[in-house]
Design a protein around this nucleic acid. Sequence first.
DNA 1: ACAAGTTGTTACAAATTTTTGACAGCGGTC
DNA 2: GACCGCTGTCAAAAATTTGTAACAACTTGT
Lengths: 232, 232
Amino acid sequence: MGMSNKLILVVEDEAPIREMLKFALERADFRVTMAGNAAEGRLRIADQQPDLILMDWMMPGVSGVDFARELKNNPTTRDVPIIMVTARVEEEDKVRGLNVGCDDYVSKPFSFPELIARINAVLRRSTPGFDEETLAVAGLEVNAASQRVTAKGEPVRLGPTEYRLLHFFVSHQDRVYTREQVLDRVWGQSVYVEERTVDVHIRRLRKALEPHGFDAMIQTVRGTGYRFSEKV
Amino acid sequence: MGMSNKLILVVEDEAPIREMLKFALERADFRVTMAGNAAEGRLRIADQQPDLILMDWMMPGVSGVDFARELKNNPTTRDVPIIMVTARVEEEDKVRGLNVGCDDYVSKPFSFPELIARINAVLRRSTPGFDEETLAVAGLEVNAASQRVTAKGEPVRLGPTEYRLLHFFVSHQDRVYTREQVLDRVWGQSVYVEERTVDVHIRRLRKALEPHGFDAMIQTVRGTGYRFSEKV
DNA sequence: ACAAGTTGTTACAAATTTTTGACAGCGGTC
DNA sequence: GACCGCTGTCAAAAATTTGTAACAACTTGT
């Protein structure tokens, strides 16, 4: 299976602690990116899209609480789990954190195993169904939470790869993708399969969509690849 | 909001958790009184007559179980609903097994919305006229209070784990869960069992539901996990 | 029309995933 | 102790999926 380690963003103003966390997290096989303050954090989030944010509670400038609240209020970042690191066991702060919508918190001094356990628990909890919403195009609905596809209400039976392929295309409409790109995004990097495999799966997907009349939405772009579009 | 808010007594030896609960409960518009141990709890009950007691089951001295049993055996306090807070999901069974007569259980870590929901459910139930908290789907009824399941009126015999599994799925319909997630939520975090164990219990649950025709509601989502749904 | 390059289609064996029955350990009861 | 219900683990069987090869069909440029 995909061994793509999760990326964790550490937002912490004190460099030593930051380094310590980085070290511990990397030992636990996570990828780590770091920020010293909220502004920098925003940048990292924008261009690296971390899977989880580990944030210090007390920070100069925009505090952890405010930053967390900001992230939770933004639809783009709402679903990224946040774990707060609190300096002291100030109960009130803890509670406010939970109120902000953080997914968990740990208080210093914490043990690394505990931290790692918490992180894993939170990540596990939120892996699939990330995007609660159901994508819909002209009667074709792809629901991520239930991992179900319906065409005009009728259920469409798909295999795992077909589902992922369709999900990918439905969420990236009107744009041509080469077979290589599709392999990267749907199969995942570091998987070696023939490019022609994409064709076969496209074929299978079309076949499954055909009885509902949606097969024409998967269009062949000769010499390049495929495109998913409502338009003909 | 009137002055009719229910009064909740929190019996919990750890001050931080106590404060956290107090804060959360007050936000949810309850009045709160607190006690750090059983003796203090008796006092609070005597002079404040709480509408509900939220009690940690692990406490030094007289344990939560003993205290609860004491209260349930006393005609004066027998009718005050008690919700036990247990450290882990597995403990729920143990506590339940002791047959103390608690009205509900929550296990740490719990989410505040969940806690509040449980409290409201219990309060509603103890308020004559309501017998809430039985989940029903197309003839399948799961009653949390009695921990009993019926299919079109017929009783369904389930073991503890099967019951929890079904309860979890019935209250989270139409959504795919990985085996890992199911383990987290039904077995509890920090329990190490093979993922395949989930399959086996799913199998047992299906077998129990089969004679009633409800086994098809537990659906396999190949490559991901399982889903509970009324739809085919 | 022809050749060369692309894509569609099908069949099939290999790989993966799920189902199922069996079994051994545990804690409680008779 | 013997019995019983419940659990977790295993491994064989069953079911589904997946990648590839082989060939048909199609497109394009000459």
